[in-house]
Design a protein around this nucleic acid. Structure first.
Length: 195
DNA sequence: CGAAGGATTTTCT
DNA sequence: GAAAATCCTTCGT
């Protein structure tokens, strides 16, 4: 359960609020430690930058729903949709720590040699949670997949984006947010700011 | 421990 | 037809 109104803001504002949030899906719970914001209209790295298509339609819909997409020929990534209907923005779930159902997560992620790797990375997190493309558009407030926001916002660091084509990394926005020092967050060398 | 390359298919130009 | 919001393995230091 969460306050949907909190998500009716641009993803850039919602992203830090999702750090420490717990996503539960099909027997596994993950505490989010790294997220990344995508703003539809001003963000060249966003799928919604060039308007609505069949793939990104969910991003233009109601906040609090899940946007899943297929990429690199073999991976699925998951986002939390933000902003009111008609405006496209979303937060990509980049990494997290498995806090429940870890045995099931290990079965789903057989290539992980360390528990910290079970949900480290967007596509890995999706596999650990048993999420698929069929979950595109799922309501996180009442469905099989749930989101629980932290009572107290987490302390976080932020920095530029990597691995995204376009000019995303050069815009004056803090795209990427993470919980400092968490073992499930890859060491980040670029300049960052602590809040 | 870091760098590099291959896998694999949907999506939009 | 090219690129893609990535992951894994292999190779080199």
């Amino acid at each position: 359960m969460f306050d949907r109104g909190l998500l009716e803001r641009p993803s850039i504002e919602v992203a830090p609020l999702l750090l420490g949030a717990v996503v539960t899906s099909r027997g596994v719970s993950v505490r989010l430690t790294e997220v990344e914001a995508y703003l539809g209209e001003v963000d060249p790295g966003s799928h919604a930058f060039r308007g609505q298509t069949r793939r990104n339609a969910v991003m233009f819909g109601e906040p609090g729903h899940m946007y899943t997409y297929f990429t690199y020929g073999m991976h699925v990534c998951a986002n939390v949709v933000c902003s009111p209907s008609g405006t496209a923005s979303a937060v990509l779930l980049r990494a997290g720590e498995v806090v429940d159902g870890i045995e099931l997560a290990r079965i789903r992620r057989t290539t992980s040699k360390v528990d910290a790797d079970l949900a480290r990375g967007p596509a890995r997190l999706v596999v650990a949670l048993g999420i698929t493309l069929a979950d595109n558009g799922a309501d996180l407030e009442s469905g099989e997949i749930t989101l629980e926001l932290p009572a107290v916002p987490a302390r976080y660091e932020f920095g530029p984006r990597t691995g995204v084509s376009g000019a995303g990394g050069t815009l004056a926005y803090p795209w990427r947010f993470w919980i400092p020092g968490d073992p499930t967050v890859s060491p980040y060398k670029a300049r960052s700011v602590t809040l």
